[in-house]
Amino acid sequence: MPRTCFILNPNAGPNRRHDLPALIARHFGGAGGPDYAVRPTQHAGHAVELAREAAQEGFRVVAAVGGDGTINEVGRGLLGTAAALGIVPQGSGNGLARHLQVPLSVPAALRRLRAPTFSRIDVGHINGKPFFCTAGLGFDAHVSQHFALAGTRGLLTYVRVALLEYRRFRPVAVQARFDSRPGLLETDCYVLTFANASQYGNNAFIAPQADLRDGLLDACLIDALPAVRAVRVSLGMALGNLPATKAADYYQFKQAHVTAAAPLGYHADGDYLGHATKFDVSLSPAALEVAV
């Protein structure tokens, strides 16, 4: 059993019925000690600091207990260290956990972490911010911004916010250059997602062909989303066959540069980062070790 530090976000997820410290103690050996530690976060960004400290203390695994936002913070803290990222899913969507086939049951995830398999995954960057699952511009970032202000979490809240904002959001003209294709792509952007993993979360597959270990990012471009196409996109994401619907265009790349005609919201792993008109996106192959 690797020496493990659990970084616990007490506010993650739509429900918090588990006594997580007690469950961790049951699976990792009593009331603490040298083999494991539990450290709760106190504010946004705290998990980055806690993860970096745990790596410096020699913990072999630093496990994020939370959703994709918590996982992003812990993963950022571990970049360039000898510690591996573990995951105990407690989020609203759990996109990276689902892609890595981490059990969504907390006890099952803890049992898996007692004897994990170690491997390495690619890491994306958008305007210097690392992401492990997805990042993007446009409608998904717009929804992330409003979802963060909704007051409640969970899939139903996300769907409610998305339906409300669908009537308000308008696409923006962009110019994009991908290192994998010649020339400049000039188009409208309703959604431009950069996928390291295959899904947003809740098995909504935005880029089902994406692979965390292939040394490439997958871009999914939707230039407009009228009602008929919105139904096709929603069904395609739910069924995992969005590329086959021809409702979106796909590009694989290692580096991309995007310029927007007006400020566009953007996100990394579901966390809204603000608005910008220029976006630099890149990939660092096999930059993070994971324990799953």
Rank of each mutant, 00 (worst) to 15 (best):
P89V: 09
G91W: 11
G91M: 09
S92E: 06
S92H: 07
G93V: 05
G95W: 08
G95E: 08
L96V: 04
A97N: 10
A97F: 11
H99F: 10
H99C: 13
Q101A: 15
Q101H: 15
V102Q: 05
V102R: 07
L104D: 08
A108W: 02
L110K: 10
R112M: 14
L113N: 04
L113W: 04
L113T: 06
R114Q: 14
A115L: 06
F118P: 11
G124R: 02
G124C: 09
H125G: 02
F131M: 08
F132S: 06
D140R: 00
A141S: 14
V143I: 15
F147R: 07
A148Y: 04
A150F: 06
L156T: 13
A162K: 02
L164Y: 09
R167F: 15
R167N: 03
R167H: 13
R168Y: 06
R170K: 15
V172H: 03
V174M: 14
V174P: 07
Q175W: 04
A176M: 10
R177P: 02
F178E: 04
F178H: 05
F178Y: 14
S180I: 06
C189E: 04
Y190F: 15
Y190T: 00
Y190G: 00
V191H: 00
V191K: 01
L192C: 03
T193I: 02
T193L: 06
A195Y: 00
A197H: 12
A197S: 15
G201V: 11
G201E: 12
N202D: 13
N202K: 11
F205C: 04
F205R: 09
P208H: 06
P208D: 03
Q209P: 00
D211C: 15
D214Y: 01
D214L: 01
G215F: 12
L216Y: 11
